[in-house]
């Protein structure tokens, strides 16, 4: 069954169908990246707020932030997605698939992002803040100008990892019919009936996009590292 001919036959399907598949997959990849980057932005903004609350001196706010983090880290992203898309629709709040995906992935990501940023801030030695206060910076200035930029540098590698997780999670948006890679693959599956072929291509696209993101990450990381030694 797995003779050489079978292998050739398997791959010849691609030469026949790829022209038809590529445009659909390309635009689907665009949507996947839109969801990924959009949800990353949401995760960064929400994560920053939650990390700020988590580190605040108010016990109540800090406790609330912990509850937020635990809640959104424990609920599966797909459940969040369904809650946003189907769950609250009867209450009159209706989302389109792509915004729902960006919001759900962003909320799930924000909990992780908050922890990443908190770990970054806590990794900065106390002396940095004390020194900044001593030279006359206000507490806010010392955080904004001294502590936060250094914390960001520490948080960068895990944030990029988060970006790749979000790329993979963007596949879940196909389950609420957002026109991304897996959705496009499903449509091609039902039209041409070549499930194995098209799904392998879909997997390959995730592999390549993930690789590109991690290359980009390495580049950014190296630039930051160079800056650090330069100063």
């Amino acid at each position: 069954m797995w003779s050489e001919n079978a292998l050739v036959a398997f791959f010849s399907v691609y030469s026949e169908y790829m022209d038809r598949w590529l445009p659909a997959l390309a635009s689907a990849s665009g949507t996947a990246l839109t969801i990924t980057i959009g949800s990353f932005a949401v995760a960064c903004v929400l994560g920053l707020v939650v990390a700020g609350l988590r580190l605040s001196h108010s016990k109540l706010l800090s406790r609330l932030a912990v509850i937020y983090i635990e809640l959104f880290r424990s609920i599966p992203t797909l459940v969040l997605l369904f809650m946003l898309y189907y769950g609250i629709a009867p209450l009159g709040i209706v989302f389109d698939p792509i915004p729902a995906a960006i919001l759900a992935l962003g909320m799930a990501g924000s909990a992780h992002m908050a922890e990443i940023l908190r770990a970054g801030v806590q990794a900065i030695p106390k002396g940095q803040r004390e020194a900044a206060l001593t030279v006359g910076l206000t507490p806010l200035q010392s955080f904004r100008l001294i502590v936060f930029p250094q914390a960001l540098r520490i948080s960068l590698p895990p944030s990029i990892n988060m970006l790749i997780v979000l790329l993979k999670d963007s596949s879940l948006a196909s389950l609420i019919s957002a026109p991304e890679i897996m959705q496009s693959a499903k449509q091609i599956m039902s039209r041409d009936y070549m499930p194995l072929h098209i799904l392998l291509v879909a997997g390959l696209i995730y592999l390549v996009l993930g690789l590109l993101l991690s290359l980009l990450a390495n580049l950014v990381e190296r630039r930051f590292a160079a800056n650090r030694s330069g100063r």
Partner: peptide, 23 residues
């Protein structure tokens, strides 16, 4: 390790469930 960490679980489920059924 690289391949299975880079692919979404959904894609792998689909390959196993729909893709291999076709094969």
């Amino acid at each position: 390790v690289e391949v299975f960490r880079a692919m979404p679980p959904l894609t792998i489920f689909f390959i196993l469930y729909f893709g291999l059924a076709h094969a």
